[in-house]
């Protein structure tokens, strides 16, 4: 059987809200190391990779590897019924066709359970190579959200260029053009408000803003976001979810013909 308990149930609520518009369905792969998900959007332009470690849960048991096919819109409907302070327990028998979600209020005076019907999903698993990136930028997740939201109102695509001057986001559209540059800045006292730019070599890539904007739905999960860039490769937009794990979004670039 599979059983996973998390005291901070709001994390699961936020995770599903971050994913549900990008990927309608996918498999939760559970094993004794934790829970993971890999899913592409419907146009196969981006990929979401979620990893939640076994030791990040308050209790985790998985006797047998399973792929649980989840419809994220439906999971979201159920998780909306959980209180923000609730402890959430996920449970499934081996080869079950449903996932049970149990919500416990902190005062222990309200306990509810919901069964989510599971789906059979054939998913293509992609191998993501470990690699070094030309530029890695860590910035406040709220800053990333603001940049992609602002630029989405001006244009459809963004040129992201990392140089020793900083990281520049440029777009253009019917109304005109926009450029936003962030510099390496470790002045703020709070680490989560700092911007770190680790540049091995200058790099410039073009991406569809619609997806970058969609990734920012994960902002409530983490105070910082990491962008990793290498020429002619997908950008990685990564949110660390505390001690529990991470959610990574990979977006294929637009490349000149």
């Amino acid at each position: 059987m599979f059983e996973a308990r998390i005291t901070q149930g709001s994390v699961l609520k936020k995770l599903v809200e971050a994913l549900k518009e990008l990927v309608t369905e996918g498999n939760f792969d559970v094993s004794n190391t934790g829970l993971s998900l890999q899913a592409m959007d419907s146009s196969h332009v981006c990929l979401v990779s979620l990893t939640l470690r076994e030791d990040g849960f308050d209790h985790f048991r998985c006797d047998r590897n399973m792929a649980m096919g989840i419809h994220f819109g439906n999971l979201s409907k159920i998780l909306k019924c959980a209180g923000n302070e609730d402890t959430i327990t996920l449970k499934a028998e081996d080869n079950a066709d449903q996932l049970t979600l149990m919500f416990e209020a902190p005062s222990q005076d309200r306990i509810s359970d919901f069964d989510l019907k599971l789906m059979s999903i054939e998913s293509e698993h992609l191998g993501i190579p470990d690699q070094d990136y030309s530029a890695e930028v860590k910035l406040p997740s709220s800053e990333y959200q603001r940049i992609v939201r602002d630029l989405t109102s001006i244009g459809d695509t963004v040129l992201i260029s990392a140089t020793k001057e900083g990281i520049k986001f440029s777009t253009s559209g019917d109304v005109g053009t926009a450029n936003i540059t962030l510099r390496h800045n470790t002045t703020p006292e709070k680490p989560e408000e700092q911007t770190f730019i680790d540049l091995k070599e200058p790099v410039a890539l073009t991406f569809a803003l619609r997806y970058l904007n969609n990734f920012s739905k994960a902002t409530p999960l983490a105070p910082q976001v990491k962008l990793s860039l290498t020429k002619d490769l997908p950008i990685v937009v990564e949110y660390q979810v505390g001690e529990l794990g991470s959610v990574r979004f990979y977006l294929a670039p637009k490349i000149d013909d």
Partner: peptide, 14 residues
Amino acid sequence: KSTQRKISAFFGNG
């Protein structure tokens, strides 16, 4: 003119 690539063009089957 630039073209939007598919993500599978970058990552192999794993």
